[in-house]
Computed example of a mutant assay.
Amino acid sequence: MTAATDTQPDNSLPDAELVREGPPADLLPADLLPEGLADRLPPQAASAVQITRAITDTMVAHGYAMVQPPLVEFERSLASRMAGTGTRRMVRYTDPVSLRTLALRSDMTVQVGRIASTGLRGAARPLRLCYAGQVLAIRGDGLEPERERLQIGAEIVGTDTVAAACECVSLAIGALRAAGAEDISVDFTLPDLVETLSAGSLPLPPERVAAVRRELDAKDAGGLKTLDAHDYLPLLYATGAFDTAIEKLAAIDAGGALATRIAGLRRIADHVGGRAALTLDPSERHGFEYQSWFGFTIYADGLRGALGRGGTYRIGGEGGHDEAATGFSLYPDPLIQLCARARNADRLFLPEGYDPDIADRLRAIGWQTVAQLSDADDPAALGCTHVLRGREPVRL
């Protein structure tokens, strides 16, 4: 994520977008939750804990140190690291202590960047950090109305090399597989492709770069022709299965400007091997506002939408700090819901007078136990599948 130290917080959001008219507060149920927010009930909450632990344990096992940034920061600090992008999504309010504007985080990656460039500025590089926590947006998207999401991620601070990209893609795949995801696929992209080509072998006037990038995002061949950007048309067709798409990309005459990127993509693909299906869309920009030469989106079979994104970027902020980094963020809520539906843990009812040593032994091998508290306790109603008879569980 490229720093923009002169970026000021975006306070231009119209009041109509900040406050939506609704029924008077005294007519709303007292226990109603705000739109886009929800409780995690059993078994979703248990699945969330289990999946978070599986993913973070995988990251820690690969040498990533856990950090826990605060839920709220000064808006100026967050905005200065977001290049103005996404600031309109942050929930903001005035701090009664400092009288400065605070914001609830909508992205934890920028907080990790702040930690790396301040408290861990003197730590040896490459610096591997990971994190997990909730993020909140002022509103959800059309297809994803949830305003609060779980974000889990890992960052390599101090390098944006092909080797770092290989490690991050492999780690993201491994972490999701450890959490129960199956049939994983990864889509590669080159976020700064248009800027690179327009400054070299396929020149464009500066004022047309954004428009060409927009038409490529929309996959609009007619729009590119209207912009007289015919040289960029082949990029629309260099998409699909990786092995085929990379050959089409290599065939584009770009005066060698794509050679190092193509070589990097091939090396990453070789490193992933057969652990995931690979595709390529070199001009994809959605969700890659911060990334530089490489980006990727990760999916899993049976789950709606992307499970995460990552790539190379630069950490910046106030004070002139600028540093290369590579990382990814996972949003496993769809996986949590899928695992919760499939969750069918055995629960053992412990009647009065049970032997606590036997109960400890059974919990140690994976049983969940529910101890009887009164004669009115009904094992089946309490969700138990077995009852302890003597020393052994017996199915109800």
Rank of each mutant, 00 (worst) to 15 (best):
L338Q: 10
V394I: 11
I268H: 01
C339K: 13
A241R: 12
C168V: 15
L18T: 08
T312S: 14
G158R: 01
S12K: 09
E207K: 15
P42N: 13
W367E: 06
R20A: 09
I115P: 00
T312K: 13
S185V: 03
T2V: 09
V112H: 02
T297M: 02
E17M: 10
G240A: 02
D6P: 05
A211M: 12
D95V: 06
D10A: 03
E148C: 06
T297V: 05
I298N: 04
E284A: 08
P205G: 15
R391D: 14
P43H: 15
A364Y: 04
T226M: 11
T326V: 07
D243I: 02
G274R: 15
Y93S: 12
P351H: 11
E17T: 06
D253R: 07
L41M: 15
Q68F: 07
A229G: 08
G158K: 00
R267T: 15
T159P: 01
L104A: 05
T369G: 05
A277H: 07
A238N: 06
V186S: 07
A300R: 05
A46M: 14
R20D: 03
R208T: 13
A181E: 03
R261D: 14
A251C: 06
S201T: 10
Y232K: 10
C166D: 03
A172G: 13
T369D: 04
R147T: 11
S198M: 06
R40M: 13
A259L: 12
F296P: 01
A238D: 02
A250M: 07
M90C: 03
A25R: 14
V387P: 00
L78I: 13
L335H: 04
S185M: 04
C339L: 12
Q134N: 08
R121Y: 04
A359F: 02
F294H: 02
Y64C: 11
G287W: 01
K219V: 08
T260A: 15
D301Y: 08
W293I: 05
A103T: 08
R53N: 07
R100N: 10
A116Y: 02
S47W: 02
R341C: 09
L129H: 01
A83K: 03
D270G: 12
R363D: 02
S106M: 04
S201I: 09
L396R: 14
D377N: 12
L388N: 06
L224Q: 03
G142C: 04
